[in-house]
Design a binder for these strands. Structure first.
Lengths: 211, 211, 211, 211
DNA sequence: CATGAATGAGCATTCATTCAT
DNA sequence: GATGAATGAATGCTCATTCAT
């Protein structure tokens, strides 16, 4: 009659499992309303074990943000690689990729969390802005500028135009994932991306010359 | 002979000062991290007095959301009233108004708060969606549809096009007020609204016929 | 059927009651092994109420030491007043007073506690040394020096002689109150003081000239 | 066929390194504030290994006291051996030896520790008193009694006179090692012992016959 | 009615002890 | 045997809520 061992040593993947559990709970309930014990339970370990890997609940949050930032350096690389394409194609590529990613709740969770807790963790919000938003915005500005330089795009105010590029994606995800509006659309974002790009590129109105 | 009071003052229509203080603190620190005592202090009354008007901290939050909903029903009315204008003008009017309002942090605070605490108060988020978002979205859909019917707008997918209308405003406010990006722009939103409308109406590219 | 009130407002004397309870528990069990909840129970209030009066357990300890220090400024005054007497009489007066005081476990408790926790609270030990020990030692040095100057005492090393004055008292109290040796003697210290003074003044041996 | 081990290694005579480390930490920080993990680190073994030698943290403390008691039985023996000397010489020998020992912080540590934790471990304090203090006191009483019998010492109250013998040593060590008063004196105790013996033997005052 | 002292359930964190490796 | 990851009871402290004043 073999009794189950009470626990198993798994030092290496523990921290990531803790962060995964924490991300879900933090973004569902907020930082303050999430109990360390719940994170532990969801991560499959005991309350005390959490503190082998993280000094405090705040450090868990911090690690969460740091973990999310690191791989995003890739974004810039991808952009650089695809830079041979014209601006319109680039925009399509990047937005499609972005929308698909964000349609995965796991990917959207962290930005939402940072947004939620920005007031309580200003340094982390600042770090996120610096490492993620600024870089992302710069990339979009580059694309738009390139389109203008190539004569494809009109000479719009580039920083403000960025809002027209990312804003609709943001709105789509927020409406879908937070408020459950047109939730089915959110899960397969192709139709949205197509619509967004069409309006963004061509505008709502008929071209003047088409009359 | 003491007669029973016929009605009790409803919490909702009592001390707006409490709700004002709560809104500031909740949206800065989150619901859980805000102490009733702090709300009381900021509202200029004692901790105990809070409980004369609100049964619990949660009820304060609830009242906050309810208070915000009522006046917003007006939006739809205003829109209906101004419906003599053509779609493009309407859009301009509404977006200008909306952007100016949202550039006041006090107006943005509640939507942000609802967003923050949506996970913890699903019924309130649901109510907010129903009473505010759905109505707002419906209004925008109406405008866009009217533009299409009038032949001014191309026959876009109306619900998805709404994202292109409100998304940039959302992005502009979020970047400015949460992350401090181009904060000065956020405070005088006219340039942004002009840029947004231009791109939204005309698209990023030169009209085909302009060649 | 009058039900007992759950609690009673007594803001003013609470802090002292907490300190009294804490002193007993700290000196019996040590600082670390004493639970705030136990202090609260012994003080007749709830755990949470402690924190209305003291910011932390450490602050309770600190207040305890401070409270003990303040009234000891009297010592110096008393000494100054009685300074008309000759050294031997002064010594008798002071030692009798001191021994009687220290024979009350309540008075001995704090010095014992400071001694116990000196390692963990070096600043407090330092403060106690500065405010209590240094002053006490200085007073005894003054008395001895006066005796020497008057020709009554032999020209001994004054700082070292202080050990002979206070050491026996210390030993007597420690043996009695901590280890329970000759406990009955400890409670009525007159016999000890007489013996101590006799040996201190006259020495163990017969005077040389008495042969 | 596994034979039962005839005996288990008794915790007491096992790893002195653990006890050495524990003594340092216990007497610096107190029993409760000392972590088993720290003892292990200072002893150069792992946390788990501690429990091979000691059943619990309390047992470590107990072993510490027991270890200190055994060799001290010698004291009495040494005294018996040197008993040919007269009382004054004996006193000088013993006090010099004692003061030199106690001036080593390692020797003073255990008595201080027992003093500190007497409240929490009454049986151990009692044991220490019985095995160490009572024997030491008895030895001093014997010496004093011998001096009286020989006519060298005056017929003082012997048990109380013991306080005059050991108290100054106690005070000297406490002031020096706990409160850092005249710390340099503490490290080379000869001057103190000379002073102490002089005052103890001859008293503070001039002999009557010297007039 | 208003106040704020008092309550006590609740939560983050620690650490003696156990036990898989 | 030795190690140190894992456990979970214990404890300091907080704060929503109550209620004597």
């Amino acid at each position: 009659m073999q009794s189950e061992p009470k626990w198993r040593r798994r030092a290496d993947d523990r921290p990531d499992e803790v962060l995964d559990a924490a991300l879900v709970l933090f973004s569902r309930n907020g930082f303050a309303a999430t109990k360390v014990e719940d994170i532990a339970r969801d991560a499959g370990i005991s309350k005390g074990a959490i503190y082998r890997y993280f000094d405090s609940k705040e450090k868990i949050f911090e690690s969460l943000v740091r973990r999310a930032i690191t791989p995003l350096a890739d974004q810039a690389v991808i952009l650089a690689q695809t830079s041979k394409d014209d601006a319109e194609t680039l925009l399509k590529t990047v937005l499609t990729m972005g929308a698909h990613r964000l349609s995965d709740p796991k990917f959207l969770a962290l930005p939402r969390l940072v947004l939620q807790e920005a007031g309580r963790f200003p340094e982390l919000a600042e770090m996120y802005r610096r490492e993620v938003l600024d870089k992302g915005i710069a990339a979009f500005e580059l694309i738009i500028q390139r389109g203008i330089d190539a004569g494809t795009f009109r000479p719009v105010n580039v920083p403000l135009a960025v809002r027209n590029v990312i804003g609709p994606v943001l709105a789509h995800m927020l409406l879908g994932q937070v408020f459950g509006i047109d939730e089915d659309q959110t899960r397969s974002p192709q139709a949205f991306v197509d619509s967004h790009l069409d309006i963004l590129i061509n505008g709502l109105t008929h071209p003047q010359g088409a009359h």
